[in-house]
Amino acid sequence: MSSVTIRLPRQGAGLALLQKYGVYLAIVLILVANLLVTPNFFTVDNLRTQLVQVVPVLIVALGMALVIGTEGIDLSVGASMAMAAAVLPLYIGYGFVPALIIALVAALVIGLTNGVLVAFVGVQPIVATLSLMVAGRGLALLVAGEQLRPVIDPSVLALGRGTVFGVPWAVLIAAALVAIIAVLVNRTTFGKQLVAVGGNRRAAELAGLPVKRILLVIYLVCAVLAAVAGIIGTARLAASVPSTIGNLIELSAITAVVVGGTPLSGGQVKIAGTVAGALLLQIITATLVKHNVPDAYSQIIQAAIIVVAVYIQRGKVFTK
């Protein structure tokens, strides 16, 4: 079966534009609203805060976009973050770089298990990664001795708080990762192969693509990206908190990906849209917190905005 776009009959040029650029439009609208009603919103400090805060969700969403592109899903990203967060302070005694590498490798265990279950054993991605979401965090807590550890290593603290010409390290790393993943998706054979797997796995197999290997690599990449998010989160907090870090981040990441125009049915990956989706979520949260909106309302408002954003894009979401 090949993919087709369903064109709604009454769809005009305006709606088409809205569908394509809806998420960007929403960002602009909310920014303008903040310009009018939120004190101190358009200060350098505040905009920097928003960029720093969006980093973990954004990096996780990049990996999630790849996985969703293969018609998969990864619910275990929070566990990968927790694993990296748990391992980092244990090995910081050996130096910053070794600790970083070991933390990333530890998260690879989760990505590897996901990849093997999905690609080789044939478990559905939602089931495989759901088990890892639970077991992975358990393992992270076990590794950490169920403890919360303050992190005082100066290199780690610099990663969390340091800036280069006023731009925080976390933001620079995120920007670099966005660029790398965008090139991977849009400019490499691997990028084309991964959407081929998501678009039609059977056809990709018949075409001789190494489908299983591609899936394995994608889940590994997703786990490593989540681990980077976990390390940045730990550095920013100056503490390793494996019990709570990245809790429910999978939902924010999936939302960012979908709001950004990547269909859950796979076969497409929109990196720019994913970045925009993550930014949209961030400024919605920031706006609600700054206006002291009670939690219950703020959850409803966030959900409503997301539903509207996805609804507007429904034309693009119908594929196959």
Partner: peptide, 9 residues
């Protein structure tokens, strides 16, 4: 036109 179509089939 979708990539899956192009590369896949």
């Amino acid at each position: 036109m979708f990539l899956s179509e192009r590369i896949g089939i």
